[in-house]
């Protein structure tokens, strides 16, 4: 149990560092300035694939709580909606397809679901801009391919992190 807590803490720290790093990067050309890569998703997908699904959900909730503390309640709700929808879609896809899909596709689905969740929260809380959704979905596909490929490349390295046994 204590190993699990320590491991989740490590993962959460990685996610937060990834997010902080991402804010230092310049905006991606050809995409709206508010779209970011989502490097934190790499750690999250590692959790879904190699640790446990419930721990991934916990991680997401913790990250949303951190966003709530640092950037205010609305940002917290956005993060929670996007993150939870993202993890749920990933878990659902793994149930349906099991070994038949690649990391890239899972990552794309997760990124798109994340953007969709945030869009839904934005629509409910602030205002509905339906025309913006295709932009977000395309951005999700692009960033999903990038993070999925990065996960695949990084796996030999981060695979050495021994999840709690």
């Amino acid at each position: 149990m204590s190993k699990k807590i320590a491991f989740l803490g490590l993962m959460l720290a990685i996610m937060l560092i990834c997010t902080a790093l991402e804010h230092m990067l310049p905006p991606i050309p050809f995409l709206p300035p508010n779209v970011r890569l989502g490097l934190a998703n790499i750690a999250l997908m590692f959790c879904v694939f190699f640790v446990s699904r419930s721990s991934a959900i916990t991680l997401n909730a913790l990250k949303a709580f951190f966003v709530l503390l640092t950037r205010g309640p609305i940002a917290g709700v956005f993060s929670l909606c996007g993150g939870l929808l993202s993890v749920c879609v990933i878990i659902l896809l793994l149930y349906i397809f099991r070994e038949k899909i690649s990391y890239t596709a899972v990552s794309v689905a997760g990124a798109t679901a994340h953007n969709f969740g945030q869009f839904a929260a934005f629509s409910v809380l602030i205002s509905l801009h339906l025309w913006y959704l295709p932009v977000l979905i395309i951005a999700g596909i692009a960033t999903g391919i990038v993070t999925g490929t990065m996960l695949k490349i990084l796996l030999p390295v981060i695979g050495k992190i021994r999840p709690y046994t």
Binding site: F97, I101, S102, T104, V108, A109, L130, P134, I137, I138
Partner: peptide, 27 residues
Amino acid sequence: MNRPLIKKHDIFIYAASIIIAVSIYLL
């Protein structure tokens, strides 16, 4: 651990995302 970068069933996910995006754009 050893999933390849691209698999055959990936096409479903890409197709679904693009279809949703395009249909909303047309809407």
